[in-house]
Design a protein around this nucleic acid. Structure first.
Lengths: 207, 207
DNA sequence: CGAATAATTGACAATATGTCAATACGGCGT
DNA sequence: ACGCCGTATTGACATATTGTCAATTATTCG
């Protein structure tokens, strides 16, 4: 006769439990808009009590912010530092950008997709930081050597270019109106033109 | 002795009341994220009972969608049809884009600002339609005459370019890292390059 | 001036979120 | 093996928010 008492719930390490809840939250927030996902949904999905979510993330908003952070975070490691001609470097950078996009795939689209009205300052900050990092990397690789001055303008240009990268990514991934090769061509050419022609003129005008 | 009975509330025409509520909603949703705006807030702001919001817009989400629509809607009227050289036409189109942006100002930024994770299909649809209209207009003005074929690719390119327009707009309006003149220069040059050099090559490659 | 119409209200029910004391899992020492 | 203890986890409670709808009242029309 089995006197084994089966535990009603498993006790996990905080980091572990946090991660598990976060995984479920990422999926649900990726499928439905914020308001359509209740903390009960997340709790049920994770198989835990709803209160545990508040214990680990404070509030629903806290959980949401963590999801956003996790989704846009890019590991600073193994960032390639391509060498060679400008053309080669540009193509490498664009390749890296597209790779980052396809890696996240559908999830990525949900992240950068416009929810519409109502910009949450904190969300804004997280996304802005991710954009800034990507821009910084691009500048490091394909930027001209002499950016002691007007470096801020250059980064601003690259961030603006980043908007085109995202939009082109949507055309490729979700709308499928462009192939990856086409997107690669367009972004490479545009970036080359931006760095080689537009930025110099902008710099000269400002002098 | 005044026997005048002052009415507790004014009775407005449905269109009028709808508009009034919508105005308040636009302001509030522009200031705070969706979840941080309660229908009670909107009702209080408009000086009406909360139930009236549901009467006119069905649900909070319905009100929100209406706000989004109103914010991204561009009147199809008085769209300029600039003539002249390609350079002039491009500059006119870019001017129009920037004008549309500055008209809405801060509000506009909130609209196209990424809320983060969780793409509402309906919101997505509204924004996509607005983008499509803008792209169509740009193609009509600065597109090459012979777009009987590859017109879809061209519109896709312009929509991608639209992403850069928005991002550049943010740099100008909110971050103030670029001036309007600088943004104008960048977008004009990039659009010219896109239409004149990139698209032809893309078309030839696909032939 | 009185009745009809419809805009508007306010109360009610259902659902979602945040809080916290009580509970029970599981490691640790004996 | 066994019981103790730290703490991960629960579950109930209080509050806030949303949607519904019959009752109310401002306004129009004869």
């Amino acid at each position: 006769m089995s006197t084994e008492t089966v535990p009603r719930w498993r006790r996990l390490e905080p980091d572990e439990r946090r991660e598990q809840i976060l995984t479920c939250a990422i999926r649900l927030f990726g499928e439905r808009p914020y308001a359509a996902v209740s903390t009960s949904d997340v709790a049920r999905e994770a198989g835990v009590a709803r209160g545990l979510i508040n214990h680990y993330f404070g509030s629903k908003r806290g959980l949401y912010l963590e999801v956003v952070r996790r989704m846009v975070m890019v590991s600073d490691h193994n960032l390639p530092r391509p060498e060679g001609s400008m053309r080669q470097k540009v193509e490498s950078v664009v390749d890296w950008l597209l790779e980052a996009i396809s890696a996240h795939g559908k999830t990525w689209v949900a992240v950068i997709g416009a929810e519409g009205v109502g910009d949450d300052p904190e969300v804004e900050r997280i996304l802005a930081e991710a954009d800034e990092r990507a821009a910084e990397y691009v500048v490091q690789v394909v930027g001209p050597g002499d950016i002691e001055s007007h470096g801020e303008e250059l980064r601003a240009l690259i961030r603006a270019f980043g908007g085109m990268v995202k939009a082109a990514g949507r055309e490729w991934i979700t709308k499928q109106t462009l192939t990856r090769e086409q997107v690669h061509l367009v972004l490479s050419r545009q970036l080359t033109h931006l760095i080689g022609d537009v930025f110099p003129q902008l710099r000269d005008d400002a002098s």
